[in-house]
Computed example of a mutant assay.
Amino acid sequence: MRFTSTPRGARLARRLVSHRLAAWGYPYDSGPNETVTLIASELVTNAVRHGRVPGRDFHVRLTAPPTNTGPVIRIEVSDTRAEKRPTLTTAAPDAETGRGLYLVSQLAERWAVGPRRGGAPGKTVWAEISIGAKPSDSATP
């Protein structure tokens, strides 16, 4: 889905992620929904703050491909600023910003930065989160 590179666009992207996960069987108050929504929040905020090009939007892609080791949710956030690649840094204890990618690195099994799909200008930051079975998939005793 495409969003404007504004705080409102970031807020709408977070809501879309949370709603989509709920529709996939991960309720709003579940661990997977909260974790993926937090990661999405950090990635879309970075796209708006650091990847913004006036007149260009950012894109969010959320997938849950089946794997042999259980469900994996992948979130991809693409913007049009290829030259501003995010880096993992250590924020000062009293800093009000600078911890977003640290949170992503701690919550996701894998994350990285790469080129956008289809050769479009910019970059994609992605993260993958392995999760257990959906509550609806559990067998009842």
Results as ranks from 00 to 15, higher is better:
Val36Tyr: 07
Gln106Glu: 03
His50Asn: 00
Glu109Gly: 14
Gly114Tyr: 05
Val36Met: 12
Arg8Ser: 14
Ala82Trp: 02
Arg11Thr: 14
Pro65Arg: 09
Leu107Ala: 05
Glu34Gly: 10
Pro93Tyr: 07
Thr63Gly: 06
Ser30Pro: 07
Glu96Tyr: 10
Arg49Ile: 07
Pro86Thr: 01
Asn33Gly: 10
Arg99Trp: 08
Pro71Val: 05
Gly31Trp: 08
Ala40Leu: 02
Val113Thr: 05
Ala95Ser: 14
Ala95Pro: 08
Gly25His: 02
Phe58Ala: 06
Val104Phe: 03
Val72His: 00
Arg99Leu: 11
Arg81Trp: 01
Trp24Gly: 07
Glu76Ala: 05
Ala82Gln: 02
Gly25Lys: 06
Leu12Trp: 10
Gly9Ile: 00
Val48Cys: 04
Gly51Thr: 04
Gly70Pro: 11
Arg49Gly: 03
Gly122Lys: 01
Gly122Met: 00
Ile75Gly: 05
Ala91Gln: 09
Gly118Ser: 10
Gly122Phe: 00
Gly51Phe: 09
Asp57Ser: 13
Leu103Tyr: 03
Asp79Ile: 02
Thr69Ile: 06
Gly119Ala: 11
Gln106Cys: 08
Gly114Leu: 01
Lys123Trp: 03
Ala120Asn: 04
Arg117Pro: 04
Val72Asn: 02
Thr6His: 03
Leu16Asn: 12
Gly70Asp: 08
Ile73Asn: 06
Arg52Tyr: 02
Pro86Ser: 03
